[in-house]
Structures are given as structure tokens and as C-alpha cells.
Design a protein around this nucleic acid. Sequence first.
DNA 1: GAGTTTGAAACT
DNA 2: CAGTTTCAAACTC
Length: 583
Amino acid sequence: MSHTNQSGEAAECDWESLITTELLNFDSPNNANTYRKSLTPRTAYYTSITSLQQQFGCIVQGEGNEMDNPSTQPGEGSCLTEFAECQDRTASSSQENDCLGGTLSQKTSSEPASHMYRGMRRRCLVFEMVGGRRKHLDENSISVSPTLTQSDGNTPSVDKQPNSIRTPSDSSRCILPGIGLHLNALASAPKDLKVVKHDASIPGRLVIAPGSTATFRSAMADQDSFHQPLALATVEPDIDPSDSGLPHVEDPNQSSAMVVYDEFNQNSPKKKRRRLENDAEPEACKRCNCKKSKCLKLYCECFAAGVYCVEPCSCQDCFNKPIHEDTVLATRKQIESRNPLAFAPKVIRSADSATEDDSSKTPASARHKRGCNCKKSGCLKKYCECYQGGVGCSINCRCEGCKNAFGRKDGSIFMGLEAEFEDDEIDAQDRSSRDGNKHKAVIQNETEQNPESAPPATPLSFGRPLVQRHSFSSKKKPPRSSLPTIGSSSGLYAIPGLVKPQFLPPQSKFDRHFETVQEDELLPDILQGNRSPISGIKSLSPNSKRVSPPHSHSDLGISPGRRSSRKLILQSIPSFPSLTPQH
DNA sequence: GAGTTTGAAACT
DNA sequence: CAGTTTCAAACTC
């Protein structure tokens, strides 16, 4: 939706133009070869490209027939359909938002596997587009790998992407756009849709989503400006792959599907990095600074995020590049063999968080998968993965002296609320440190508070950025109004089930540009249908207890006993007007 | 910008 | 599984 705006069609036109141009570039044999080169072995990769092409082609041509491909894989078909609708709507320039949120949710019924993939669709309009395009390719006798197909289902919403891509003036085509979870983080956020400005420094990135079922390649076609950025975004399944029926993406192929991004980034990492830092929107992409790991270990944020290192990185001896795809994949596989969840999102968002009501956004809705092990930071600094991910600590955490503003491990689930009271306990020091981290969060608040205005906007709010979202006022502890926000952060993660927190860029980076994505958009059907108890402050459905298994109490960071208390707390909170958009 | 702190990742 | 080392981000000055 980001691309849609008040300007309505005008904007759309620009977008199309841009895309068209990029597409052409991409299509050119030379360019195509370039991209294929590194991925050639990988069907997925190829597919991705194809998808990309299709995507753009679709946009350019304005085709709406993607829909006629119901037979495609579950996620895909629906995606196409939705996408088509979105396009239509967009064309009419009237309901961009619907596209993202309404459309997706509404369409579900028509889809075969809709139930399963619904969540995915929401998150990935972009992918949907891809899917559509893919279909196209198929017609053109281009084989699409299954992997890709799956990917499509997860594709991020097109709406958002377009914006990012489209910025007319943007030199950077960073496609941050879409990104899957991981990408999200990278790409994300930063882009203020309205200001659609891309950080040139963030050329395309390869995103390898470990578990991602969907891979999206944004075509940042403009290679010139982007240094060949082919961004591929992969989205992870909202739910456990097994649940969705989607294969876990450990498949190398899938991994391979990445954005092929540039090989040009290698020069002067420091300069690049510096440039990025100074850049107005440095936050756009993740950048590492690895010196010894060759960017082939989880120490490397890029690698861990499933993306290739890019120009902005200051890494040394980096192997996390398309040219070393095989190495990357092999390493990745090795790591996964050791720990299958190594590349899985670290933050698990509980179902409830996805509630549509802003009020329902609870901080506790998401929790770190493994929990942190902080000893000295009090879980108040980004050293803490929980804190960094914008989620509260849970019983899974082994932290000491937990003061996580998003929720303490001891059970203070609802930071927002409790924070008010508990914060008192927090010494000034803690606060200051917290404030420092959240300095920019405040800005975000407005956006969150007016999700509707912003949401569509976020081209990709995907991503890590959530942290930022938890904005407390920079100067104070989290205001009540912010409570929801806190919770929402998790919501930002596109996937209700899984998110990649680790990639959340520093808050500071995101805050500014961050645009809210409605959680519900991302919320999988399952979650919606069955809201966890926590789900909603406002709405506690009878089914509230039917929480999806994955979201155990532990996930929520609440012990069974605590659950009830938490619930009470939430319920006690009527609603947060500020957070609840009134339109 | 350099140095320190921190905690995850990796290793033993 | 626990302890130690390595690593790079986060943070401080």
C-alpha cells in the first residue's frame, strides 16, 4: 500500500514507470546473466528472478489474470488473487489499505488453502505479485521451482514494496522492501512511504530465509543505481512450517534463492559503512562489521539474517556474497544441522498480538524463542536479544536482574502497564539507558497510534524494526498509550508466529521511518480464528484458549499461573485511544 | 574513532 | 550439558 497515496494514480504511474524501467533492465540478457550467474545452480534462484520479472511485468502490464491460476500452490494462488485485487483497487486509487489488510483477509474464503496461508498472504503482498508474475513465466515455459512457489505465498505485500521500489528519485533501489522477516529488518523500515526514499547505500540484499517458504526477489532492477541489486526477500512462514504444510526452508535451494545482490560492495567497507551511518536512512539495511567470521557464522548479522552482505557492510574477508553462494549455503546448512532453528526467527510472536485492535497490541505478545542470558545489562540494552527484539523476557530467559522494559522475565508481562508501576522501581540509570535506546521511538508512536494512516504506508515495515516501535516516550517511561505500542512491536513483525528480531535494526534507525503495519494484516488465520487469551485486550474470544500450540505459555513469557493475571491486566485496559485509530 | 562491555555463538 | 573461548554488536568515552 505504500505506493498508494493521496496522489492516487499519479503515484501509481510513477511506480509503474520505475518498475518498468527496472524490469527492462533486468530483463536484458546481460543483467539477467549477471544475476543468474551466481545462482545458476539453484533453481530457486532462477525462479526468483523469474518471479521478479513477472512481478514487475505484472505491474507494468497491469495484468490481473494472476488470479486464474488457482491451481498454483496454496499460498500462491491466493496471493495472486489478492494481488490482482489489490491492483484493481489500487488502480481505482481508493482502497489501498484494503489491499493490504482487507483484501487479504477478505479473500481468504475463496482460496483453497487459504486457511493455512492466509497469514502468509497478509504479510506478503509483494510475493503475491511475484506469484502472479511467476505464473506468467510458467506460461512462458520458465520452470518454477517448488521452492519458489512456496515462497510466493509468503511474499510480502506488494503494496508496500512498490513504494520502496518506486521512489522515483531514489537512487537506491534498495528493496528493502520486502522482506521477509529478516529482510524486513533489513530493509525495512526505514522507508517512510510517503517519503519514499531509498537508501542507496542499501542495495539489494540476498535474503535467505531459513525457514522461509517464500522467497521474494524484488527487483531492484536498476542495477546501475543499485549496483545490481536484486533483492530477494524471503518470508518465513507465519506458522510452523509443518503446520502450514510448507516445508521448512532448510533446503539449500531455497536458501539460494536470494537476492543476488551486488558484488560491488566490496570496496572500502568502512567508507561505505560510514556513509551509511551518515546517511539519512542508514537504518535501512543491516550491515555487519565482521572481521574474523568471514560472515559465515551467526555472529554475522547479515548471515544470521539470511541475507548477503552488501556494500554497506564493513566486513572483511566476507564470504557471504552471491559469488560464494555455495559456501554460504553449505555453511548455512551445517549450522542448521547443528541447530535447525539457528536461522529461525528468534522472536516468536504470540497469536494474540496480531489482533486488529490496537489495544490488543500487547508487549507480551511476542517472546524470544530461546530467551536471553543477560547478566549485566538488565535486559535493558540491546545486548539483550529480547530487548533488542522489542519483546519482553520470558520464562525461557536465564537473565539476571531482568528489567526488560518490554516485559520482565519474572512475569511482568505487560510492560506497558506494569512498566508504569514497575518503572518506578527502575532506577534512573536504567531509565536513562532505556531512553537512550528508545530515543527515536517516540516519533514512531504517532505512527502507531494512527496505524491506519500509516500502515499501508509501510512498505515494509517488515522487519526487525519492531523495537523501535515500542516507543516509549523517549524521555519517560512508556506512557500508557505506549503500552499497546509495545505489544505492537511484535505485531510489526510481519509474522505472528515468527519474526526475526535479530535483525531489527537499531531502534534509532527505524523509528524515524517506521511505518506501522497492521498486525492483523500479518496475522495468520489460525491466529485470528483462535485468538490466544492474550489476544486481545478488547476482544477475548471464547476461543482465546485455543492458542496455537507453538505459542505456549512460555512463548508468551507467562507461566500458566500468570496468564490469568495478565489477562486481567489487559482487560483492565479498556483501550488506548491513541493507539486505536479512529477512522 | 578507539576502546570497553556484553552476551550470543562456537568450541571443548 | 557445562564451561570456556571467540566474536561482533552495543555501548562508552
